[in-house]
Structures are given as structure tokens and as C-alpha cells.
């Protein structure tokens, strides 16, 4: 039984909560484009500071933004190392021969075991992972003993370091921007904003109202369906099909015993729901009024102007630079 958080929205007050979701969506997209137009680390650092000030002004909990980055740590690490290893431009900073030998491989096995044991403690997992990756290189470099399977060159160039830092800052800014959006906007407002923005797509036959209704009904039923899934799991566990136990072979049957009831209940539910909606005069494709109406306010104008100015500035910088 895990916590259920649909979306990352946390209730609160402040600048960004007062904004119309449409302004927020467009601003975030525009600012992201602007960030991509920036070409140097100093420029990005300025943008980063602006971002930090924005979050401070908007009273955004920094902890939550950092937590929002956690799932993307692998991506960040990957980009970082990718740039360091494969960018071969600029001055050569480091050039070492790596030895894949009996001793270094054994060392790495030992190192892996130590890493896994330490990881069990549960804290500083990211730092540990980084230390582990670094450690592998140290071991390859300084343990050239025993039978050697092969060797390879490990070189770091100036541009590699620069680019890896550049890319990381850019990603961090972009993730923070989107986190600000999801932290301060209810999932329902987000879908309504998207719906409203996608309305012009009607020309090519995409009905954004349907899309929004589907999303909002899904949001409404996620807790119900999860609750049900747990109950079905408990019911099947009572018949000896415990999902926390059992071999892989048994798992297949267990999954079927979970999925079939879930689907059957879901079909029944969608029938019931369709009846309930129809009986309350819902007709697909017919125009409806809305209980939540989106309205632009002064904040939206302010933020809009700021966004446009930021975009204009980056374009100017791009052209001059």
C-alpha cells in the first residue's frame, strides 16, 4: 500500500497559484525554448539565478523541486558521462591507460559488493552511485596487476567538461520549470488549460473537450481502481496466490488472476458510468458550459510580459553571439 499522489500538485498560495493554467503552460514552453537558445555557461548561470529568484518569489518549496529531479538522476548522470567520454574537442586534460586485469576485475567485484552493502543503509544513494562509478575508473587505473584481458584509453578533453556542465545546468533549469508548473497547478486545471489551448486543433478533427473529459474521469477513478486492485490482490492472496511470494512460474497465473477481475469490474464500471452520464444528459460532441472558467488576471499579464522579454533577450543574444 503506497502513498498515492496523482500529479505533484501541492496546495498553496503565491504568485504561480494565482495564474491561469494556460499562461503557465505557454510560459513554461516559451522559457524552455529560450533556455535552448542560450549558448554559454555564464548565460545559463544567469538564467539559473533568474529561475531561483522566480521560485523564491513564487514561494516554491525548493525541497520539492529537488525531489522532482530524483527520478531523472540517471538521465542527468548519463548525459554528464556521455559528454565527458565522447566529446573529444578542445585541450586534452587527462589521458590515462585503463587496465582490465584479473586483479582490477576482482577489485571491481569487491567494490560492487561494498557499494550494494552501503546502499542498503538507504541514505545518500546518489552520492554512493557517483562514488561507485568513479571508483571503477580508479580501480582500472591503479590495479594493473595480474593477467590483463585488455586495456583502453580514457581521455578527458576541456570541451567535454564544459559541455557536460552546460548540459547539466540546462537540464536542471528545464526540470525546475516543469516542476514549478506541476507543483502549482491542479491536474484538472492542467487538463482544462491544455484543452483550451488545443481547441484550434478542431480544424484537423481533434476534439480537445473529449480529451479533457477522458483525462478528468481517469484522474477521478485512479484512487478507486487502485483501491480495488489491492482488494483483488488480497482476495486472491486468500486463495494462496500471494503476490509477495511465489516463484516466477506462479506469478504469471497470479497476474492473470488479478487482471481478469480488474478488467471485468472496469467494463461493468464503464457501462454504469456511461448510463449515469447519459441519464444526466451528456451527449458526446454537444457543447457544454463549464463550472471552472479560465480567466486571465494581472499576474498573467505580468508573467506573460516577463516571458516574452526573456525570449526576446535570448534571441538577441543568439543573434549577436
Amino acid at each position: 500500500m503506497k502513498n498515492i499522489v496523482i500529479g505533484q500538485y501541492i496546495p498553496g498560495k503565491g504568485l504561480f497559484y494565482r495564474m491561469d493554467p494556460r499562461t503557465k503552460i505557454i510560459s513554461v514552453i516559451t522559457l524552455m525554448i529560450a533556455i535552448f537558445l542560450l549558448g554559454s555557461i555564464p548565460q545559463l548561470l544567469v538564467a539559473f539565478s533568474v529561475c531561483a529568484v522566480m521560485m523564491w518569489v513564487g514561494n516554491i518549496p525548493v525541497k520539492r523541486v529537488i525531489r522532482g529531479m530524483k527520478p531523472l538522476i540517471i538521465l542527468l548522470l548519463f548525459t554528464f558521462f556521455f559528454q565527458i567520454f565522447f566529446n573529444k574537442e578542445g585541450k586534452l586534460l587527462l589521458d590515462e591507460v585503463m587496465h582490465v586485469t584479473v586483479v582490477s576485475v576482482l577489485g571491481i567485484v569487491l567494490w560492487t559488493i561494498i557499494w550494494r552493502l552501503l546502499a542498503r543503509i538507504g541514505k545518500f544513494k546518489t552520492v554512493l552511485l557517483l562514488a561507485y562509478i568513479m571508483g571503477i575508473f580508479v580501480l582500472f587505473r591503479f590495479l594493473p596487476f595480474g593477467y590483463s584481458f585488455t586495456t583502453f584509453r580514457f581521455a578527458i578533453y576541456e570541451k567535454g567538461i564544459e559541455m557536460s556542465i552546460f548540459v547539466i545546468i540546462r537540464l536542471v533549469i528545464i526540470i525546475s520549470l516543469s516542476t514549478v508548473l506541476t507543483l502549482t497547478t491542479k491536474p484538472t486545471d492542467l487538463t482544462q488549460g491544455l484543452e483550451s489551448l488545443m481547441r484550434p486543433l478542431k480544424i484537423i478533427g481533434i476534439r480537445s473537450e473529449d480529451f479533457a473529459l477522458i483525462i478528468s474521469i481517469s484522474l477521478r477513478y485512479i484512487p478507486t481502481i487502485l483501491d480495488e486492485a489491492f482488494k483483488i490482490m488480497a482476495a486472491q492472496a486468500s486463495r494462496g496466490a500471494d503476490f509477495a511470494e511465489g516463484k516466477l512460474k506462479d506469478k504469471v497465473k497470479q497476474v492473470i488472476s488479478l487482471l481478469v477481475p480488474m478488467f471485468i469490474i472496469a467494463f461493468k464500471r464503464s457501462e454504469d458510468l456511461a448510463d449515469a452520464m447519459e441519464s444526466r444528459n451528456f451527449v458526446p460532441g454537444k457543447p457544454r458550459t463549464r463550472i471552472h472558467e479560465l480567466r486571465f488576471g494581472w499576474t498573467d499579464i505580468g508573467v506573460g510580459v516577463f516571458t516574452l522579454a526573456a525570449l526576446a533577450l535570448t534571441i538577441v543574444l543568439k543573434v549577436i553571439g
Binding site: 477521478r220 461493468k268 444526466r280 458550459t289 472558467e293
Partner: peptide, 28 residues
Amino acid sequence: FQNPDNQFVGVTVRDDIAFGMENLMVPQ
């Protein structure tokens, strides 16, 4: 209907009460 859960369309109580009226084009 019988099942309270399967006829609740809105994300909140307010949205659910509104659903039928929205379909009838009642002004906000």
C-alpha cells in the same frame, strides 16, 4: 443508481453536482 462509486463523474463534489447542468448549458 445502486453503486455510489460508478456514477460519480466529477473530480470533486462541486464538479459532480455541476456535471448535469454543464450538459444543459447552464451559465457558470
